[in-house]
Design a binder for these strands. Structure first.
Length: 594
DNA sequence: GCCGTTTTCGGCCCGACTGTTTTCAGTCG
């Protein structure tokens, strides 16, 4: 099968898939094991890349990608120049194209896919037809007729394929959604202190990723079988999907699943570390341990000379044994944290308690806004802020509809400003008069320039035309940033988690402009957005660009979303000084005048 | 095929689970 691409129209996922196809081809041909690993590693990197790989290629920067060395670089270069690679085509040529579709189904690997396509007739194109063919073969009980498969494998394949087709297979939940399921269950477990000493979330949930694949919880106990039994007493318990003596998967009445694992106290630290991940962090950790003569697993750390297995009841001691500073879960992605932990030089991360205010709040004051109005009054917002021990809030209602006459707008703004002053005085609380203004497709602002003086500062954001090219979007944003009073670029990539991919833009270029103009970029803390994405937070930290966290609250209770913004900031290695929410009011006022 | 404060050669994470090929292969996280 000659594999052709349009170099102008190929994304990172497709390139990652191609490299996995190469790995699969080597697997089928019993090629060298470490070549297979190398291609898969390169695919992993490219899949998680934050810049389009074609963009890196244009700038001759492919060798900046870890796990892409001289050989893969050469093949990719040919692919991007000519639309295909001779070497890849040679490798893929004699393998049925359906193999590379079938391996996308979790649970089906190269060998299985190869056997299937050799024994049965599969369509060459159409992902849907290929998967349906597999389902139909299983239903006709044909798969169990070939060597290596019996009824059970056949059943399993049919199930995997059906799940893939229905897209009910691993759907990722929002972090907030997963916590709403996990936290009440943990409270339930902790009510039984005689049985359970501690219960914590694991995996991507503990590392605070914006979306998580499953809800894993660890319980520290000496009576694992009793803990497994206890689950059935949980008020929202529906059934056990699996239940062993040490672990269980339970289904709740609302359909969510929870994976529970148990561990005795003396090795709880190792288990916690292992199941927190990430996979890449753990691999790097084990490689490093091996150099020092230790083998790491969820059971502990084994000294390869003495064969002694060391147990750890907590993570601090686990990392210490390996000569490392304890690493906050949000950093465990193998992005350089291990090297810094080795020198005890991990950055100080921002903490929820460092936050002194919220930069993005919508009130119910009606200025005939272009987008949705808030639902809470100013007073309630200030009461909430005081409960959160804040020192300030920025009131950032949406700009009025464009159709409204300029002097009508001015009248509304002045009326709003009087109310803000009144509430501020009444509660002795600092309120900034701000506005969230749309950036028009041409980069102009959706409000008259002469009205900007009525505000302490302006937040700008893209709310329309997300489909522009990267360079047009970059120009659009940079033009908007040049207006007076503009201090913050809100929800910068426009992504809505699980719904809309963020748009692409030349972020390094935009960051440079923001830094030069003493502006800031927002980490939108809404659990539906979490925008800036963490890798761009990291870029902001590296290049010295300041950030604000704003909840984008449309009701007082939404102000509790701040924690999501803080976690996202921590995932991007941000410290207190990178985030303007930690600044004193005097410092803020000085910054606003810059 | 990738990578480097013990290496430009010689290494490359670890264990669980599942199903089937009674000793292992495939897949996953």
């Amino acid at each position: 099968m000659p594999f052709k691409i349009d170099p102008k129209n190929v994304d990172n996922q497709q390139i990652a898939w191609l490299l996995r196809a190469i790995a699969a081809a080597y697997t089928i041909k019993n090629g060298p094991y470490f070549k297979i690993v190398a291609y898969n590693n390169a695919a992993d990197e490219i899949e998680h890349l934050t810049t389009p790989i074609t963009y890196l290629w244009q700038q001759n920067r492919l060798d900046e990608i870890p796990n892409v060395g001289q050989h893969i670089k050469k093949h990719l270069d040919e692919l991007f120049r000519t639309g295909q690679s001779k070497h890849f085509n040679r490798l893929l040529g004699d393998i049925h194209p359906a193999v590379f579709i079938l391996i996308k189904v979790p649970g089906i690997g190269a060998k299985t896919a190869d056997k299937l396509t050799k024994h049965f007739k599969f369509p060459k194109k159409s992902e849907e037809k290929i998967i349906k063919t597999l389902i139909s073969l299983a239903k006709q009980a044909k798969i169990q007729q070939i060597a290596g498969f019996k009824a059970k494998s056949q059943e399993r394949l049919a199930k995997l394929a059906a799940e893939y087709l229905a897209d009910i297979s691993p759907k990722r939940f929002l972090l907030s959604e997963a916590l709403e399921v996990a936290e009440p269950f943990i409270s339930f477990l902790q009510q039984h202190q005689d049985l359970i000493k501690e219960a914590v979330v694991l995996g991507s949930l503990r590392r605070r990723l914006p979306t998580v694949g499953d809800i894993d919880i660890a319980a520290k106990t000496n009576k694992p079988d009793q803990v497994v039994k206890l689950c059935s007493k949980y008020p929202f318990f529906k059934e056990y999907e699996t239940a062993g003596s040490n672990k269980a998967r339970i289904v709740l009445t609302n359909g969510y699943r929870i994976d529970l694992v148990t561990s005795p106290a003396f090795k709880f630290g190792s288990l916690l570390q292992h199941l927190t991940g990430s996979k890449f962090h753990n691999i790097a950790l084990r490689e490093r341990a091996l150099e020092k003569g230790y083998s790491v697993s969820e059971h502990g750390i084994k000294d390869l000379r003495t064969k002694k297995l060391h147990h750890f009841d907590n993570e601090v001691d686990f990392y210490k044994f390996l000569g490392l500073q304890w690493i906050p879960p949000e950093l465990r992605e193998n992005k350089g944290e291990i090297e810094l932990a080795e020198r005890f030089k991990l950055p100080q991360l921002i903490d929820k308690n460092d936050v002194l205010g919220d930069f993005h709040i919508h009130s119910d004051f009606d200025i005939s806004t272009s987008h949705d109005l808030g639902r809470s009054g100013l007073k309630d917002l200030v009461i909430k802020a005081k409960n959160l021990k804040y020192h300030f809030l920025a009131v950032t209602d949406h700009n009025p509809k464009k159709a409204l006459a300029s002097d009508q707008k001015a009248g509304l703004f002045k009326k709003r400003n009087r109310l803000i002053d009144k509430v501020s005085q009444q509660f002795d609380f600092c309120l900034f008069k701000s506005l969230e203004v749309d950036i028009n497709p041409d980069g102009s602002l959706a409000i008259e320039k002469n009205l900007l003086d009525l505000f302490d500062f302006i937040i700008v954001a893209v709310h329309s035309r997300f489909d522009m090219s990267s360079s047009a979007m970059t120009d659009r944003i940079i033009k908007a940033l040049a207006y007076p009073k503009v201090k913050i670029l809100a929800h910068p990539t426009g992504r809505i988690l699980n719904k809309r991919k963020g748009f692409e833009a030349d972020w390094p270029k935009i960051f440079k402009v923001i830094k030069k103009r003493s502006q800031a970029i927002e980490i939108n803390a809404s659990p539906y957005r979490l925008d800036l994405p963490d890798d761009l937070v990291r870029l902001a930290v590296k290049t010295g660009v300041k950030m604000t966290i704003g909840t984008d609250a449309h009701a007082d209770k939404d102000m509790d979303w701040m924690k999501f913004g803080v976690w996202n900031a921590r995932r991007g290695w941000a410290g207190p000084d990178d985030i303007i929410n930690t600044w004193s009011i005097e410092k803020l006022k000085k910054w606003l005048k810059k």
